[in-house]
Design a protein around this nucleic acid. Structure first.
Lengths: 340, 340
DNA sequence: CTGAAAGCGCTTACAG
DNA sequence: CTGAAAGCGCTTACAG
C-alpha cells in the first residue's frame, strides 16, 4: 500500500462543488469566508481525516520546517541526551528533526551534509567527527544554509557554536582533587585533533599551575581512543611507576570506569590511595562501585540552545550570527573522591 | 540567513541560455541529450554546487523518501540501538528518518502520528507507549499510509509487527537458572498493559511448569515501573520472607542491578546464595559487579528488519502484509549466575 | 464572499 | 537533439 487515501484540498473542493481557494481559506480561517462555508468545509475535512501537506505548503514558502542533525554516533548516552534536547526544542518551534550518523567518518559527514541539502532542510545542526580536518566543504554549505555546530566543534568553521566549557570543567575537577590533598594527579586523554581533549587538558594544566603543582610527563597519558579498555591498560602502566599517582583524572567516564576496575583488582583503596574522576556523568557512573565523581554535561540544554540559535538564524533573513556559546557544567562529587 | 543561495535548474538554464527541460535531462543523464550539452551543464552544476531538491522531486511522485519513527523515549540505550539499525538500513535504501518521542503519553503519540502525516512521510515505524489502550486512531492512520509496529507492539493493531521473542527468551533465562540447581526463582515484573512483561512472565511460568517447579505467588512481584529503585525495594521484601528465593529474575537490567546492589549490601553471595538475571544486555550489565547474566536483544536487527518490511510495503502498491516477525535473542551468561 | 490563475522546483509526455 | 507545457498540493494577489 502506498499513500493513496490521502485527502487533498482538491478532493474536499470536489466533494462540496466549490473551489480549492475557498477550501484553503476556510481551513485557514480566513475572515472573508462565510461561517456557513467554513463549517461545511471543516466538517468534511474532519470526516475525511484531512491533514495539510506541509510538504506542499513549505514548497511555496521555500521552507520545510525540517532541521537536519548530524552526529558521529547516535548510540552514545550523551548523544541521546543531546538529541532529546534538540527534538523537544525543535518540536516546540514547529520543526521536525532528521537525524544522520557520520560514524566518525569525514567523507561520510560531507555526504550527509549534501543529503541534508537535498532534503531541503531549513538548517543544519552538526557535531563533528573526531578527526575533521577538511572544513572547506562545511564552510561552503554554511554559505548556502544556516548551520550551527554543537558539542564537537571546530574553530576553523565560522559559525555559531554551542559547547560546554570543557576547560573550566576540567579545571574544577582537578581543583577538587587538589582540595582533597592530592598532589600527584595523572590524566588520561586523547591525542590528535580532539579539541575537547585539548581543552580538558588545558584545564588540567591551569589547575596544576594555579596551585603550584609540578607537571610530570610520566603521568600524562594519551590514547587514540578513550575506552574502558584504555583505562585499564593505562592504569596498569601508572601502577608500575616508581612514583605512583595519588589521583587519576580520565577525560571520559568509560575510561574512568576502566581505571576503577583495575585499581580494585589490585586491591587499591579508592579514594584513600588513589582517587578517580571521570567526565560526562553517564549512567554507568552510578552503577560502578565506588560511584564515580564526574562532570555532568547538560546535554539537553546544549541541544536546546543549539536549536534556538539555529532557528534564530533561519528566521533572520540576512544577519549572520557567529558566536561561541559556552554552557556551564556541574561537578558531581561521589564516592570515588570522597573518603568514607 | 535563510536558504537563498540554493542553485535550481532554472538558474543553470538561465546561465546557459537553454531550457529547464534540457538541464534536467542532462543531469539525469538522459540518452537524448548531446554529450556536449551534458558536459556544459554538469560543469556549471558543479561550479554552482547544485543539489537537486528532493522535496520538489518527491512532490511530483508523491514520495518524500522520509520515514517517520515514533518511540516512547529516545534516551534509553536499547532505543538508541534500535534507531541506529533503523537509520542505517533506511540510508541504504535511500530514505531519511524523522524521529519523534511520544514520552509515554498516548495523546502525544496520536499527535505525533498526525504530524508525521503532515510531513508527508512515506511510512511510519511505531513503538507504542507503555499504556496504549486506544488503537482506533492508529488503525485509521494505518489505512492511509504504510505502518509497521516494532519492539513495543499491540495485537489490536492489524499490521506487520517486529518484536523479539520475549516469551522464549524469558523461558531460556529461567531454564538456565534451573539448570544451575535453583529451585525457588523469584520474578520482578510489571503489571498492567505491558505486553512485554506479560510475555516474559509467560516464559517464566512455562519454564517452571516444564521443569515441574511450583509457582509461588509470594515471589512474583509486580511494579508499575521497573526501575533500579524498584529492584532495591523488592529485594528487601524478598529478603524478609521466611522462605527466601535462591534466584531472582528481573525482567529488565536496571531492576536487576538494583537487586544486585541490595543483595551485596546484605552481604549475600551472588550467585551461590541468590543468583540474579536481567533482560536487555544494557551497557550497565558489564559495569556492575558481579557482571549480570542477561538477554541480549539485537536492537540493530529489529530496527533493520522493521525498515525492510516497511519499505516493502511502501513499494508494493496494494498488497497489505500483516505478519508478526519474531527476532531471536541470545542468553548472555555472566558472573551473576556463574559460580566462580 | 468566491473563483481563476500564478508559482514554488522538478520530471516527462508531447511536439517539433 | 531541444523546448513548451502540464502537473504534484498548496497559498495568495487579483478579479469580480
Amino acid at each position: 500500500m502506498s499513500k493513496k487515501n490521502v485527502t487533498t484540498l482538491k478532493k474536499i473542493a470536489n466533494e462540496l462543488g466549490i473551489s480549492i481557494s475557498t477550501v484553503s481559506r476556510s481551513l485557514n480561517n480566513h475572515p472573508d469566508i462565510s461561517e456557513q462555508t467554513k463549517t461545511k468545509v471543516l466538517n468534511i475535512a474532519k470526516k475525511l481525516n484531512y491533514v495539510p501537506n506541509l510538504f506542499a505548503k513549505g514548497f511555496r514558502a521555500h521552507k520545510t520546517n525540517i532541521i537536519g542533525v548530524i552526529v558521529p554516533d547516535i548510540s552514545h548516552y550523551f548523544t541521546a541526551t543531546l538529541l532529546k534536547g534538540i527534538i523537544r526544542e525543535a518540536e516546540i518551534e514547529g520543526f521536525k528533526v532528521i537525524i544522520s550518523e557520520s560514524r566518525n567518518n569525514e567523507t561520510k559527514q560531507t555526504e550527509m551534509l549534501q543529503t541534508m541539502m537535498q532534503f531541503g532542510v531549513d538548517g543544519i545542526l552538526l557535531s563533528l567527527t573526531r578527526k575533521t580536518v577538511e572544513v572547506d566543504e562545511i564552510i561552503k554549505i554554511r554559505e548556502q544554509i544556516p548551520l550551527v555546530l554543537f558539542d564537537k566543534v571546530s574553530k576553523k568553521v565560522p559559525c555559531t557554536q554551542v559547547v560546554i566549557d570543557d576547560e573550566d570543567a576540567a579545571f574544577r575537577v582537578v581543583e577538587h582533587l587538589i582540595n582533597l590533598g592530592k598532589k600527584r594527579i595523572a590524566i588520561i586523554k586523547e591525542f590528535e585533533n580532539s579539541l575537547i581533549s585539548e581543552l580538558r587538558f588545558n584545564g588540567y594544566l591551569r589547575a596544576l599551575k594555579t596551585y603550584k603543582l609540578p607537571v610530570d610527563e610520566k603521568i600524562i597519558l594519551s590514547a587514540s581512543d578513550i575506552s574502558m579498555h584504555q583505562g585499564k591498560r593505562f592504569t596498569s602502566i601508572l601502577l608500575s611507576l616508581k612514583e605512583k599517582p595519588d589521583a587519576i583524572f580520565a577525560i571520559t567516564d568509560g575510561t574512568a570506569i576502566g581505571v576503577i576496575k583495575t585499581l580494585r583488582n589490585h586491591g587499591i583503596k579508592i579514594p584513600e590511595e588513589i582517587a578517580v574522576a571521570g567526565f560526562s556523568n553517564s549512567e554507568n557512573s552510578i552503577i560502578i562501585e565506588p560511584k564515580l565523581t564526574t562532570i555532568d554535561q547538560p546535554g539537553n540544554k546544549i541541544g536546546k540552545t543549539a536549536v534556538k540559535y539555529l532557528i534564530d538564524e533561519i528566521n533572520n533573513e540576512n544577519e549572520v550570527i557567529n558566536k561561541t556559546v559556552e554552557i556551564k557544567t556541574n561537578l558531581v562529587v561521589r564516592e570515588s573522591t570522597l573518603r568514607s
